[in-house]
């Protein structure tokens, strides 16, 4: 933890962990967009993530370490900054520092609270067990036999196969099935609750505020500021923040309006 002695190293830690978290966030958002494809795809995706095993824990631990470092360092920096001006200005106005950039610690803390709730809600499942506990069964293994029709007429609803001039009817049989978490249904039923949706939307908006400053700030901290490109970096930072927010907010909105979820 000796890096904390240096303000610039601390800033680097903030930037690097921040970038990892933004990377996760992009992946998370893209993954969640599969909700719009349909229940099966989404649940398959969810099951895939769950099925990563040890790899999942590698990712989770990386994220947890980044989050902890990010929070720990930011609190240390904030305390330093607070101490750097023991007597506050009686009258202060700002020329360039924005509401977002001045309040990173507060948006950060609120996002943290939101993330904890979000994890309890969607990952651990203890926040709203009613919405969480949806399962569906999916076929795991099938067997099939081909039965000679012996010239009988077969209704077109049956699957048939023709070989050596003979027609066989295919008879499938489920040998085993298993239940998996119906993540799709969990999301849809959760967001049909307007209070949950509003909390989620607020959380995402706070996140977007945090990101508009954070992303371009990381570039500056890493020393990537060039007069020719920094305009694009700032614009890109805002655009990415808005894009992430719009994507994530589109989920509860489309569920509340009935576009997604249908008859569940």
């Amino acid at each position: 933890m000796s890096y904390l002695k240096s303000s610039i190293l601390s800033k680097w830690v903030m930037a690097v962990t921040g970038i990892v978290l933004v990377g996760f966030l992009i992946g998370h958002t893209v993954g969640n967009m599969q909700l719009f494809i349909g229940s099966d795809t989404f649940n398959t995706y969810a099951a895939f993530l769950q099925g990563l095993g040890e790899l999942l824990w590698v990712v989770r631990i990386t994220l947890i370490v980044c989050v902890l470092l990010h929070i720990f360092t930011s609190i240390k920096l904030k305390l330093d900054n607070y101490a750097a001006r023991p007597i506050k200005y009686q009258y202060k106005s700002y020329l360039k520092a924005k509401l977002t950039s001045r309040n990173m610690i507060w948006t950060g803390i609120m996002i943290l609270a939101f993330v904890v709730y979000h994890l309890l809600h969607f990952t651990v499942g203890t926040a709203h067990p009613d919405y969480y506990n949806h399962y569906e069964s999916v076929v795991n293994e099938k067997s099939a036999v081909a039965i000679d029709t012996q010239g009988e007429q077969i209704p077109p609803t049956f699957k048939t196969i023709t070989q050596d001039g003979k027609t066989y009817v295919i008879q499938e049989e489920v040998k085993s099935a298993k239940t998996r978490h119906n993540t799709y249904k969990m999301v849809v039923t959760s967001f049909r609750n307007p209070i949950i949706s509003i909390c989620y939307i607020i959380g995402v908006i706070l996140l977007a505020f945090h990101l508009t400053h954070a992303i371009q700030s990381a570039f500056q901290t890493l020393g990537l500021n060039h007069p020719r490109y920094f305009g694009y970096i700032t614009a890109g930072s805002n655009l990415l923040s808005i894009l992430i927010a719009v994507c994530l907010i589109s989920i509860p909105v489309s569920i509340l309006t009935g576009i997604v979820g249908g008859a569940i």
């Binding site: 800033k11 101490a83 360039k96 990173m104 901290t221």
Partner: peptide, 12 residues
């Protein structure tokens, strides 16, 4: 005992 830069650009 100076604070830490958080890239608010108020200084500029």
């Amino acid at each position: 005992g100076f604070g830490n830069c958080t890239n608010m650009y108020e200084c500029e």
